[in-house]
Design a protein around this nucleic acid. Structure first.
Length: 720
DNA sequence: CCGATCTTTATTTTT
DNA sequence: TAAAGATCGG
């Protein structure tokens, strides 16, 4: 089983070598972007195995995404001959889930507890607000959700909170009520997975001893993204005999919104007496120009441990900059460029299009489809969050556990079967009265209205029929019998896609049919909440990679397009009021740029449709932070996109509202003496003059009358 | 009391 | 734009 140890270590630089071959003890590796972080992590595992310092079951590897976990597993398998099944590798949430399944009793959970994803969580909260007679206007469900999650991620239960602010007086009891409801229903939200297993370990020295003995090596990737609870959770596993190996980069901390505390890195040094972390500062990924540009952007952040990332590589080509006329021409340009690169021999897998938010993927999808370019979108509308999938899953959940109120409410009238709001309210009252589940209330009543009786019969009938079936067959039957299939077949608008997704659900189920440990259906249902759904087609096929910047972390590509670089989109407008969040946006930009090995394109549009409206954003501050000698400005070549352009501009809305004698153009950048630079977003004729709506970079939106306001048309050539 | 249709509204990032 | 809520006709 001994691999060749020397070939494992070939080509590592001294710092990487030091990290891989650490003898014992805990260590933090400060690893800049592209410095071989993942390589060090995986090589260390392979080295531990190859030199017999550890067996697979002694190793616990924690990552942040399922994709990263798979990647690590694949790389190790390629390096060593030992099977890695006994190794525990996964996300914090995945690992906690595993723990709770094994030790459900110690965690005080029912055996068949279900995981609540964020959408489910929100609807539970909505319903809770309703039962408490609290109007959503007074207390936004999202705010309640944020309150609960934020505290759980800090390791706090409602009972440990004191109402400092007046609003907390309402929120704390809600938090408590929510937790009671989840406990009673056997529901576990994402943060609860962590908190619950943390508490379980805390009160269970035997378990702690067991796992400390088992896991001699605990490796954590992307350590800068751990939150306080995750940090405390990790501590349970680090014993006298075990070694914690954490890898991170504070410049790549992009999960602040999820409670990530980059300060955990400093805490780690202190708590584990690490005097000197190992620093990996040589970048092996990107050419000089890309690295210089990325450094110029990140340098503007104040809260950072300054690092000196350098490369031996050549400068390479300048970065390509494009300010397109519209979001459509931006996409058209990128797609055309991709097709050119493809023909020039760059593999499509090696090209990525990145964007700030998932909604931006639609335009690309359309354009790529039209052009016949293979593409693969990661994330996006998560497979298991689509309504048709949720409906199907709710039926399955009801079959497993009829007491599942949420599942029942979701499908009792989907497809519509004449059970309306009144009936359901009556049912809820009835259940409350007899202190039972909704299903219990249905069974209690012997004179059920026909429609309700039919529903009960349907569920029981499906349960009986599917009992002997394989999982995928079971899903097929449920989709057909429940009427979901017929419902989507009738609905011509989106029927193909939804039916295809249901079909895909059956395909995904096949993978769980041979899961020996558990009842396939149960393990399938639980994975549904945690897996983001890499079940998209085109597996193995060479395809252009599309994803959010968040999803791209840890990956690298020959050529990278960062699109939608506009103020309000990237940096996102929700982050502009908060300096901390603006810094996170900047780190996000840094992550995006450093994904590129050889070529980097930065693009933005002067006009963009957002939430179904036209917007005229300024280009992103991040573009202006890059020294102009590193960039080359491209044009989106109007002639080629004339059709798309005309299509966008000549909408009814524009014909109606745009006075044709307007001396300016919508979308034009103008300079105002007092307000500075801005973009004209709207115009209205007011008698002889016009009232312009101008979005100023510094001071926001203003209305200006052309009779008074002196606006200077801002010449593009002045910028560069 | 249901269900279809109109209206409103809220839109980041991930597990 | 799309999903959730409010309204209206049967």
């Amino acid at each position: 089983m001994m691999g060749n140890t020397h070939s494992l270590l070939d080509g590592l630089n001294p710092q990487q070598m030091q990290a891989v071959c650490l003898a014992s003890g805990n260590m933090l590796i400060l690893a800049g972007a592209g410095s071989g972080k993942t390589r060090v992590l995986t090589t260390r595992i392979a080295w531990l195995l190859a030199t017999n310092q550890a067996r697979p079951h002694n190793i616990l590897t924690v990552t942040f995404t399922n994709k990263a976990a798979k990647e690590i597993d694949a790389r190790i398998s390629a390096m060593v001959e030992v099977g890695t099944q006994a190794m525990w590798a996964g996300t914090f949430h995945g690992l906690c889930h595993r723990l709770l399944r094994i030790h459900f009793k110690e965690a005080n959970l029912p055996k068949s507890f279900q995981i609540l994803d964020s959408t489910d969580q929100l609807s539970v909260i909505r319903r809770l607000l309703k039962t408490q007679q609290l109007s959503e206007e007074l207390l936004a469900p999202r705010q309640v959700q944020y309150f609960i999650n934020r505290h759980k991620e800090a390791g706090k239960r409602s009972t440990f909170l004191s109402a400092d602010k007046p609003q907390d007086q309402q929120l704390i009891p809600l938090f408590q009520l929510y937790d009671e409801y989840c406990q009673q229903q056997g529901l576990v939200d994402f943060a609860e997975l962590l908190l619950r297993s943390h508490e379980m370990m805390q009160s269970n020295p035997l378990l702690v001893a067991h796992y400390q003995q088992r896991f001699l090596h605990i490796l954590v990737d992307e350590f800068q993204d751990t939150n306080r609870l995750q940090y405390q959770w990790l501590k349970h596993f680090v014993g006298k005999e075990s070694a914690l190996f954490a890898v991170g980069d504070d410049d790549q901390s992009i999960y602040g919104f999820r409670g990530a505390e980059p300060s955990n890195m400093a805490l780690l040094l202190k708590d584990y007496d690490i005097t000197e972390p190992i620093r990996l500062e040589q970048n092996y990924r990107s050419v000089g120009n890309v690295l210089k540009a990325a450094n110029a952007v990140i340098k503007k952040n104040t809260d950072r441990l300054d690092k000196a990332l350098w490369t031996q590589d050549i400068d390479g080509e300048p970065l390509n900059l494009l300010e397109a006329a519209t979001d459509k021409t931006e996409v058209a340009f990128i797609v055309k460029e991709v097709s050119r690169l493809d023909k020039a021999g760059i593999l499509l897998d090696n090209i990525a299009v990145l964007y700030r938010s998932n909604a931006q993927s639609r335009l690309f999808e359309q354009a790529l489809f039209d052009r016949g370019i293979a593409y693969r979108i990661y994330g996006g509308l998560r497979f298991f969050e689509r309504q048709e999938i949720k409906h199907a899953i709710a039926y399955l959940r009801l079959i497993v556990n009829p007491e599942d109120n949420d599942a029942l409410l979701r499908v009792i009238n989907v497809p519509t079967r004449g059970i309306g709001l009144r009936t359901i309210e009556g049912l809820i009252d009835h259940a409350k009265q007899f202190n039972t589940s909704l299903w219990g209330a249905l069974k209690l009543n012997h004179e059920l209205p026909v429609k309700l009786a039919n529903f009960v019969a349907l569920i029981e009938n499906m349960r009986a029929l599917t009992e002997p079936m394989a999982l995928s067959e079971m899903i097929r039957l449920v989709v057909a019998r429940s009427g979901l299939k017929a419902m989507y077949e009738q609905n011509l608008k989106d029927h193909t896609e939804r039916l295809e997704n249901l079909e895909e659900l059956m395909n995904a189920a096949v993978n769980f049919e041979s899961d020996g440990d558990q009842i396939p259906l149960i393990s399938f249902l639980n994975n549904a909440a945690l897996e983001s759904g890499e079940y998209q087609a085109q597996h193995g096929q060479r395809a252009l990679q599309l994803m959010t910047v968040h999803a791209a972390k840890g990956l690298e590509f020959d050529t990278v397009f960062v699109s939608g670089l506009e103020e309000g989109l990237f940096p996102h407008e929700n982050s502009l009021t908060n300096a901390k969040e603006t810094q996170e946006e900047r780190r996000l930009m840094y992550v995006a740029m450093t994904r590129a090995k050889r070529q980097l394109y930065l693009t933005c549009a002067k006009q963009r449709v957002l939430h179904g409206r036209f917007n005229y954003p300024m280009r992103s501050r991040f573009i202006d932070d890059i020294p102009s000698q590193l960039t080359k400005v491209l044009s989106d070549d109007y002639a080629n996109f004339g059709t798309t352009l005309r299509h966008t501009m000549v909408t009814k809305k524009h014909l109606k509202t745009m006075p044709n004698d307007l001396p300016y153009q919508i979308g034009q950048t103008v300079m105002h003496q007092k307000f500075g630079l801005g973009v004209i977003t709207d115009a209205e004729k007011m008698g002889e003059t016009f009232r312009l709506t101008v979005n100023f970079a510094a001071s926001g939106t203003k209305w200006l009358d052309t009779a008074y306001a002196k606006l200077q048309i801002f010449d593009e050539s002045m910028k560069h």
